[in-house]
Design a protein around this nucleic acid. Structure first.
Lengths: 344, 344
DNA sequence: TATATCTACGCAATCGTTCCCGGCATCGAT
DNA sequence: ATCGATGCCGGGAACGATTGCGTAGATATA
């Protein structure tokens, strides 16, 4: 099925004018007589003329659209971040093209190639859990392509980055559990390749240390797919509960880890927080309705999306190369509920 | 910051060839000598040459991208549907551009104008809760632009549509509540403009009728924003509980209605299902972890996205106008849990 | 040797739009 | 009457890639 839209040429032919005149009339140029303008404008209106954005992109060498690569949009944190991205992009007249890596490195590379071949003016990315090698991004960045990282960043690439204070988030969560009497606190961590996993682990560890609790190697388990696959959470938790000294509390380092953790305990009839307390990173809107209601570390996802987009557009619209990159760190928010209640 | 990518012209100039030769060499044409091909291919590889998709779009009069308009991506049903859309589009080499209407008619019109001005080859849409007037879509459709509706359809527009059997979903949910002993069943409905709201209401009403229960006008409340705004759910439920004969069960017709309903009851310390049972449409992955766990009508969102996309691509790639449109109705799935337990 | 055939490339148009450059009227001033 | 200014408009190149057609030069055939 062909959808042939009207062009400036069609208008010119119909009205016996040149394309230049029509173009100028449509852009309200002073060089065109009011009569001609009126004629052109009316004809364009009647025939639903819309400038072809593709032709404009070709001429202007910009598409006025930005690409976004995240692991999953069906993840509260990312869908909220995307809302933030969209809110800014929309205001500035940019289109947003979203791709999902589904936590796969291979897919991330494909998405990147797809997007970067000049159909987007810049990229916002939160790397996949599998990604260890950042050379695909590095290469693009070196050739001057605008890239801004948010949440999961590539430390080796020197550009704008927007993250939450993951150290503080994990520190505060762990500290809160300690204050509530828990002593054997485990860390259910995401992919070891991710910057956020390391930062969160460091916060967790520092809180233990500051409270005089020695770090126990068997109290950390990594989930390569960040909790996307239930079995990997199941295995990790099986390991925890089969320890002689089973943990009495868990700090989960990602959204899916937190909820799948709860699902595991429910399945195994392990009571939260009586048998084991739970506190995790999550941006779900429903954590207050869960059973038990979940104590969480919440990230300002919407704001992160907004700030990252502002930085990207700034990069895109800058006349000269930018070397002064920003590293924005936003505060997380602790929301205390039932799952981390004081030990009785 | 400018990102100037290499073009076929640059290669031609560097190698002392014409652009035609370079183009043909890159496409492995038989007309080009092996030596030249090798030279061109190597130079292109070294300099990261990628064909400019915008130039190709201009020439081929197609962008190989499709637009999607939904109310919110931060909604399980839609994010799952988008995953389905993406899975098919990706396989067929199409880009997906997502826009959110945020349940606003005005925003939907803007999104549509933005997308339709030839930067997309076709559109998948689930209309906003506010939308009563479909002329913006009608106009586009009449001019031959490929459109496929899913979930929330415009009845008056004759094109492919993919929905779930909303009547059956609501019928079965209501019937289930009746079988479990509930008699005063209310319907917390979404926007009265939406096709799905009407279909679900009809299912609800028919189930009552078939079980010999008269329909009570005060047992239906509409929420114009489909539950997006908590206050509107609050008002509706305030009306229900202030009735002399308060409902003993509620059928909620949308995701946000269902969860906000639960939130309301939790806030008011109304016990579910002891004081009032709850059953709703929802595609959340966490309904089993809520307190109480929720009985829901689940839609095959992923499959809906896939089917809608297949139909759209079929429309886009069809050589001649299509007049034989499909109306796919998929079965919903009832998931029974605690919130609709048998009356004791 | 003259003609036909084939190889390997270049020219130019095309997609829709913008914009520089130019040009033809008309008008007022000298 | 001539000149400059101004108003109004058209021609054509450019953006990047593809492709039908033309053709120079080499080789093969008669």
């Amino acid at each position: 099925m062909k959808f042939e839209a009207i062009t400036i040429k069609d208008i010119a032919k119909a009205l016996g004018l040149s394309t230049s005149t029509v173009s100028r009339a449509l852009r309200d140029s002073y060089e065109i007589s009011p009569a001609t303008k009126k004629q052109v404008l009316e004809y364009a209106e009647q025939n639903h003329y819309r400038p072809n954005p593709i032709a404009l992109s070709l001429k202007e060498k910009r598409s006025r659209s930005i690409g976004v690569i995240v692991c999953e949009i069906a993840n509260s944190f990312f869908s909220q971040a995307i809302n933030g991205i969209e809110s800014i992009a929309y205001d500035k007249g940019y289109n947003v093209i979203i791709s999902q890596s589904h936590e796969s490195y291979e897919r991330e590379v494909i998405d990147l190639n797809y997007l970067s071949s000049r159909s987007i003016d810049g990229l916002l990315i939160s790397v996949s859990a599998e990604t260890e090698d950042f050379s695909h991004l590095q290469a693009l960045h070196e050739r001057g392509f605008p890239i801004v990282f948010f949440d999961r960043v590539a430390e080796s690439i020197h550009t704008h980055k927007v993250i939450v204070d993951n150290f503080k988030g994990a520190y505060d969560a762990t500290d809160h559990l300690l204050k509530n009497g828990y002593r054997r606190i485990a860390n259910l961590a995401g992919s070891p390749h991710l910057s956020i996993t390391k930062e969160r682990f460091n916060g967790y560890r520092q809180a233990l240390e500051n409270n005089g609790i020695p770090f126990n190697e068997s109290y950390i388990e990594y989930c390569l797919h960040g909790g996307m696959v239930y079995e990997e959470v199941e295995n990790a938790l099986n390991n925890f509960i089969s320890l002689e000294k089973m943990p009495d509390a868990i700090v989960a380092s990602a959204d899916k880890l937190t909820t799948n953790c709860l699902r595991y305990f429910k399945t195994k009839h392990i009571k939260v927080p009586d048998d084991v307390a739970l506190m995790g990173f999550s941006n779900l809107d429903l954590t207050d309705l869960l059973s038990p209601s979940l104590s969480v570390v919440r990230q300002p996802a919407f704001e992160m999306g907004q700030i990252a987009t502002e930085l990207l557009l700034q990069l895109i619209e800058s006349k000269r190369p930018v070397y002064d990159f920003q590293y924005k760190v936003l505060p997380p928010e602790l929301m205390i509920r039932e799952s981390s209640m004081k030990i009785s």
